[in-house]
């Protein structure tokens, strides 16, 4: 009986299924009023979380429009994590399909960048593996090696200067993208955290491809065959502490 009640309540709250009404005592206020109080609280909690994660997006859209867009997303996307900080991972994909923001061609990538920044800040600390043994590996052993990116890292490729848009809207500044030249070459980023410091690194396309191959779980042999700057990138990534571990 208790599981059924909880199922009906969740369906009522999230999917406006009115079966739960018959479970509620309506003598003081109606079942719908009771449920509405909880629905408002649920939506308000997720909206507050999204305002914290996407301050630049909010500035670009204006507070009222941003709230309306978030509420549309919240209605369509139940929270499936106990940790509210993990909510809205799919907001960028939602924005891509959201017609009223069609003209803001850079918006979904700004959202991806803000999500990556938030994720980097929140991710649990790890101890980096000692990579010095790699120096003694012969070529055949190195080729069969797999590397892992640090868990805080997000790889982002964008056709727009989202890093410039993001920077122009930090520390109380608010610069409209109209003042930023959008007509530039695609840009590639790593968004990650080292110790207490989060970073947005603008990287070369070739290094981005290298990191993408690592993320896609290719071994170093396969990556080397497709990347002429393999050794240079490997050294760069080790110097920047982009890797957390290795295995065979």
């Amino acid at each position: 009986m208790l599981p059924e009640l909880q199922k009906q309540f969740m369906d009522g709250l999230l999917r406006k299924d009115d079966r739960v009404y018959k479970q509620l005592d309506g003598r003081i206020r109606s079942a719908q009023q009771q449920l509405d109080i909880y629905r408002n609280s649920y939506q308000g909690g997720l909206l507050k979380a999204m305002k914290d994660i996407y301050p630049v997006t909010q500035r670009l859209l204006g507070g009222e429009f941003f709230e309306a867009m978030c509420l549309r997303y919240i209605t369509q996307t139940p929270c499936q994590s106990l940790d509210i900080n993990k909510y809205s991972e799919t907001f960028a994909e939602f924005a891509e399909q959201f017609k009223p923001v069609d003209e803001l061609i850079y918006l979904s990538d700004v959202i991806r960048l803000e999500w990556g920044w938030h994720r980097a800040y929140q991710t649990a600390d790890i101890t980096l593996e000692d990579f010095t043994p790699l120096l003694s590996f012969d070529s055949a052993k190195l080729q069969s090696l797999y590397l892992s990116l640090v868990p805080s890292m997000t790889l982002l490729a964008s056709s727009y200067p989202v890093d410039l848009i993001w920077s122009a809207n930090q520390n109380g500044q608010a610069d409209t993208p109209e003042n930023i030249n959008l007509d530039i070459k695609p840009r590639y980023f790593t968004i990650w955290r080292n110790g207490f410091d989060s970073h947005i690194d603008l990287i070369e396309p070739d290094l981005f491809e290298f990191l993408l191959s690592i993320e896609n779980k290719l071994n170093l042999g396969a990556i080397q065959n497709n990347n002429s700057n393999f050794e240079k990138h490997l050294v760069t990534c080790l110097q920047r502490s982009y890797f957390s571990a290795y295995h065979f």
């Binding site: 208790l2 969740m10 909880y38 929270c79």
Partner: peptide, 22 residues
């Protein structure tokens, strides 16, 4: 209280029915 069911979370404090079963 309870805060969610079947992997959907409301992040709110939902009261129990005051029954022996609960």
């Amino acid at each position: 209280c309870w805060t969610g069911f079947q992997n959907e979370y409301v992040h709110d404090l939902l009261p129990m029915p005051y029954t022996e079963e609960a």
